[in-house]
Design a protein around this nucleic acid. Structure first.
Lengths: 194, 194
DNA sequence: GTCTATAATACGATAGAC
DNA sequence: GTCTATCGTATTATAGAC
């Protein structure tokens, strides 16, 4: 019983509140005092759970990336139709962004910023890029995908993902339109098809 | 004679220094005192030229966007070969990023962040997106490009541009390789081709 | 683990002489 | 236009009681 509805611990409240405020006001625009107050804890409590404001930011970044990776991995498909699998991955990824707009906005803002140390950003990036990489390699072996340099294709696909989620988050009604949905995938698939 | 080699005014020194520091340390991580000191001026001078730190940031953002737009417009081609014109635009845009790595990094960081007011970001964005939009419309009329929703295509192309410049700035030697260069354009063109 | 109170400092912006 | 000096405030982080 106790684990079914896990209580929102103070630490989690701090993380949740930091996510909201960092997205709305930026990292340096948000004081630890404000985070603590809005989370309903004292500043002393915040610094008990996180060594520093930077450490709080890093943990938040990693936890969000893990949340995304878990969601994608748990919904992976592996049929004999690669294009169908890619489409499923594409829709699942964008749906996650639609379902977690704050986390997606956070990621868009901070995955390129100087606030988070490069090593942490790269580590968080690896799982995603590897998933794309595996799929591209398989497609190239099956002569379905063009033989451009792998790293360039990965980066382009990821860039298209960021652009599409930005677009559909700004225009949520368009995601309900099957034409827009299909177009977004066709643009991606054509870009790497043989 | 006096205008040929324009003296670096104090105001320009402040802008140049702010560009370097904002990219390296972030906006809130950079104090006005540090900008002034490194630019070789007094803090009073900084606030004489810019009403506030935010105002300095906004002017910097707009000046960089104008710099990019000017460079692209001045090198525009308008032949009867649309694919060739698009390729020229693509190479010119990426070359600008290679030639202006700091400005490109600045744009990557702040065009998505909350530091700069939305209205300023959108205003700065318009000229670029319109250029892409005009080209896509022409391509669709000539049956060269697919008839996906225009705004979605614009956003995707822009996302691919950001991804490619990120890639080539991180791997400058790859930009010298004609295969990578051509691949980057082929990926873009295929993504929107009919 | 959580709180209150506060230390120590860094910040944006201004005043006023030159 | 540019400078020096400084004001008032907000910030991160700690100390110590409970």
């Amino acid at each position: 019983m106790s684990k079914l509805m896990p209580k929102a611990t103070k630490k989690q409240s701090i993380l949740d509140t930091a996510l909201v405020l960092f997205v709305k006001q930026g990292f340096y625009g948000t004081s630890t005092a404000q985070i603590a107050k809005q989370a309903g804890v004292a500043t002393g409590t915040l610094f008990h759970h996180f060594q520093s404001k930077d450490e709080l930011m890093n943990q938040l970044f990693l936890s969000i990336k893990q949340d995304f990776a878990k969601s994608i991995f748990n919904n992976q498909q592996n049929s004999d139709d690669l294009k169908q699998d890619a489409k499923h991955l594409w829709y699942t990824s964008i749906q996650w962004a639609i379902d977690n707009p704050l986390k997606q906005a956070f990621f868009q803002q901070y995955s390129l910023s100087a606030v988070i140390p490069m090593e942490i950003k790269q580590h968080a990036m690896n799982s995603t890029l590897q998933l794309i990489g595996d799929l591209i390699r398989k497609g190239q072996e099956a002569k379905l995908l063009a033989k451009h340099p792998l790293t360039l294709m990965q980066e382009s696909c990821h860039g298209q993902y960021l652009a599409s989620t930005r677009y559909f988050l700004d225009n949520p009604e368009k995601w309900q339109d099957i034409n827009y949905r299909q177009s977004s995938f066709e643009i991606l698939w054509q870009s790497i098809a043989a």
